[in-house]
Design a protein around this nucleic acid. Sequence first.
DNA 1: TACATTTGCATCGTACACGATATAAACGCT
DNA 2: AGCGTTTATATCGTGTACGATGCAAATGTA
Lengths: 160, 160
Amino acid sequence: MDDSNLKLENQICFPIYSASRLITKAYKPFLDEIGLTYTQYLVLMVLWETDEISVNKISEKLMLNTNTLSPLLKRMEKMELLKRTRSSQDERCVIVQLTEKGRELKTGARPIPEQLLKTLLNENIKLSDVLQIKDLINEWIKILSEKTRNTDIAQPVDGN
Amino acid sequence: MDDSNLKLENQICFPIYSASRLITKAYKPFLDEIGLTYTQYLVLMVLWETDEISVNKISEKLMLNTNTLSPLLKRMEKMELLKRTRSSQDERCVIVQLTEKGRELKTGARPIPEQLLKTLLNENIKLSDVLQIKDLINEWIKILSEKTRNTDIAQPVDGN
DNA sequence: TACATTTGCATCGTACACGATATAAACGCT
DNA sequence: AGCGTTTATATCGTGTACGATGCAAATGTA
């Protein structure tokens, strides 16, 4: 039988897995400057857009479960980037809010996307490729996250 | 100032990061059947091709450092999938070899790539997209990994 | 109103990733 | 030969990821 399917170079997943780690690594020097990890940066991007949001909603947007988010948010609270409060309407919900320090970090973060893009382009990665992959993969995510939903991933907002 | 760059949906990295996790999750049911994690599966794919290889070479192929590989390989040795021996030629090198059990696992793994592809296609993901992304990203990886050889990709560009 | 079920979050255990650091063997140069 | 450097691997600490499980508040239903 032909085993070419089991060769690393022919896998679909390995390139994406590696690319993800390499790109996170490309972010690191920039994120180090403002003292964030990549995941913390993602959480802040959500908060910079909304300023006040439940853990549940963050979970949906980042497709991360509470068993990842809970400790993450606790660390970020200790870093004084955000505040966590139980909702009085629904005692089960925890509301996450930016602190002043968290809000201010946006200034330091603003140049990062462009710096990263520049890094990629410096490496001879074509902008059109970047955009193309972004769109293709975004389509996958929409499809995959819907099917994975029953196990644990966040629910899409509307109940299809 | 325009902050659209800091929106999650416009990030380059977030889609790849999410896709990587979603695809790993898509593998899980199949890998569970043969008792492997995704990373262990990657290591075995390398070994199924070569049967005897140094930790260093595995590190190159998977782009994983020894601080990830060492514990990983130890766990796999405890699972009796492989054997680790110091090379007598060069006492610094550790040679990794498949055990019979590790070799036999290839049979169980053989259908996985096709099963996964089928899963993706069932989700209306187009094969041409899969192949296209694979090629595009493989190109990136070649470029990015060359620059990353040592520690990181780019120094932050600032004026000091 | 009782009580089973669902929901939102947290905790636990395991397994990566990875920067920093350690260590011994091999190598290079004088 | 002596000694600084490089190389191959390992260890440590921290931070994700995530399945399994726990738990209290909310909800649905008889």
